[in-house]
Design a binder for these strands. Sequence first.
DNA 1: TAAAAAAGTTAGCTATGACTAACAAACCAA
DNA 2: TTGGTTTGTTAGTCATAGCTAACTTTTTTA
Lengths: 228, 228
Amino acid sequence: MTNKPNLYNLTKSEEDYLKALFQLLIVDSSVKVGNNQLAEYLKVSPASTNNMVKKLKAKDYIVSEKYGKLDLTDEGRAIAVRLIRKHRLWETFLYNYLNFSWDEVHDVAEQLEHIKSYKLIDELDRFMDFPKRDPHGEVIPDADGEYFVLPKTRLSSLSEGDVCQLISVDDGSVQFLKYVSKIGLALSSRIKILEIREFDNSIRIEFDNTIETITRKFADHVFVKKVV
Amino acid sequence: MTNKPNLYNLTKSEEDYLKALFQLLIVDSSVKVGNNQLAEYLKVSPASTNNMVKKLKAKDYIVSEKYGKLDLTDEGRAIAVRLIRKHRLWETFLYNYLNFSWDEVHDVAEQLEHIKSYKLIDELDRFMDFPKRDPHGEVIPDADGEYFVLPKTRLSSLSEGDVCQLISVDDGSVQFLKYVSKIGLALSSRIKILEIREFDNSIRIEFDNTIETITRKFADHVFVKKVV
DNA sequence: TAAAAAAGTTAGCTATGACTAACAAACCAA
DNA sequence: TTGGTTTGTTAGTCATAGCTAACTTTTTTA
Ligand SMILES: [Mn+2]
Ligand SMILES: [Mn+2]
Ligand SMILES: [Mn+2]
Ligand SMILES: [Mn+2]
């Protein structure tokens, strides 16, 4: 049982598809992921996705039946986790050592994650003294591919009166991240849900003696741990 | 006169062709570079090179007449120099911070040089406190694209009795670099040419109280500054 | 339960960047 | 100066990875 997936036989595109499918699958393990959903997530056409899925099935990274939902094999999952590890280590490096801001790291990490070298990433990990979290609060998988997804609650799923702590944020949108910084939210912020307005689903929150009204859409991208 | 070349419109292949042509052109500015020579250097077919050259001419990075030799435009040259800057900064980073050896850095740098981000490379430069030379002794072009190629002499071009100092080595071959390390040669080594044997062009050299016999081919890849 | 909508698939097209084989121009050397 | 070698070009093929348009299957909803 060799543990290291062979990252060297995959193209950038193949890697991105596997990672995307993994991300969609862990959001909610009960909901199945379909071809078109994957296409939309990757911003490509359903036809392109169908094509690529066919290829990745032939390589035994994905399993699915015709017209059925998609799932990853163990090897497909290992490749995705390894890619996520690389992505998050690079984000951490850019943020901690190269003066990149919260919202600048993702796009460059999206390129750096595809550099093929085991030594590079393991040495980068050592250089930074094995960081556990990336700048957005996400857990960095270790070199063995161990990756325990910590249970995350969306801020949008809480109720009035709840108190929580900010654990992580979605890192895909520059606009969103700038917005988070601007209103003063940061990792570990303690947030209280003051009021949820039925009319437009807006949420009134309090943190660090600040009161803000945020939209449901915004709250969907903020992950928290419930405290009270 | 905008100075920053627009690196963002070029594919990895286009970049590699421009860099290769630049490298061939600076070896000896008097000798012209042809299509097939470029093909051989890049280890692709003459037809592929012809194709790419056509594209790079259309983009105004290369000039040449039909059946004529190739030259770079100022913009083509700027892109090549910027790529070399990136390559050498990454090699320096891998060598000085990530425990890569002399012979391991090149292949990974060959990938890293194509990451598109001005901030990344300029911050990396700052992080390392603006290094002047890469691990193989090559000069690192600065952020303005200034790049004075220091006059280099091949060890193979010296005569018996000459004394020189090792300035840099070709970084393309892992086998060659391992060989250099193994016999104990290093940057700044002081080398004396003891004897040149006409029969097989082998060269007897002395350095650090060591006497070695090297081949002409080996000496072709070692660059020195003549001292005596 | 039948029609409509959504989801998935297929066929055929495009661009990039390789390749080989065949051909044309330029250069060299007898 | 002319024939052969080297160099450069063109045509046609392949793989990757996108796309649109048309089609089929599945799911939903009236
Ligand atoms: Mn990210
Ligand atoms: Mn990516
Ligand atoms: Mn190199
Ligand atoms: Mn390269």
